[in-house]
Design a protein around this nucleic acid. Structure first.
Lengths: 101, 101
DNA sequence: TTATAATTGTCTAATTATGACAAGTCTAAA
DNA sequence: TTTAGACTTGTCATAATTAGACAATTATAA
């Protein structure tokens, strides 16, 4: 349920003609773990996200965005007030971020 | 940083002329814990949120919304792509929720 | 001061997450 | 029909995180 990150990883891996083994070793882990990450059974560690971005040749923060969205979804997706909560958080960030780009 | 829930709890507690002790005992915890929750040093357990709502006489889900927003903020608030990630999650929920009210 | 409310700090226990690995399935080539 | 490679599944010990309990401290006001 809600696995944008893993789905994308797998897509990109196949597009780049890589085996799980190759990515796994670059991340210092094994293929069972990568398999689980792709299927959303386990989550990638945050520190691994930039490594994925590098190996899979996507631009910085692209996968981070998906990874974060997954975490947010895991948190709220079964809640009756999910959208309200997200909206509140969003307003808060916009408020706290007035000084940025 | 980002403690909408705790802040609101405290406000409501004072408005209702309650001491931490009274709320704490109703939640089966102690005042140090409640103090920490109010100040955002610890987070309330999700199961406690409806108890707060009852004791503090606010309508169902009102505090849950704040509680969830805090969790979301904790997750994304320091990220460069915070807003993008939230936006993605939001779209996803809207997609998955077409069939609801 | 004394009493009450609230906060701070710390320590153990409970819970949850992670890593590692054995064993399994699946597919295709021989 | 067996061999090999890619991937998946299941389990389990351990690491890491979080919670609960409580003593001690601070703050405030009578």
């Amino acid at each position: 349920m809600a696995n944008q990150f893993g789905t994308k990883i797998k897509q990109l891996r196949e597009a780049n003609h890589l085996f799980q083994r190759e990515i796994a070793s670059a991340l210092n882990t094994d293929t069972p773990m990568l398999s689980k990450i792709e299927r959303g059974e386990r989550k990638a560690k945050k520190e691994q996200v930039p490594l994925f971005e590098k190996i899979l040749k996507v631009k910085k923060h692209e996968l981070l965005t998906l990874w974060l969205a997954d975490q947010v979804l895991e948190l709220v997706s079964n809640e009756p007030v999910a959208l309200k909560a997200i909206d509140l958080a969003q307003r808060e960030i916009k408020g706290l971020t007035l000084n940025r780009s």
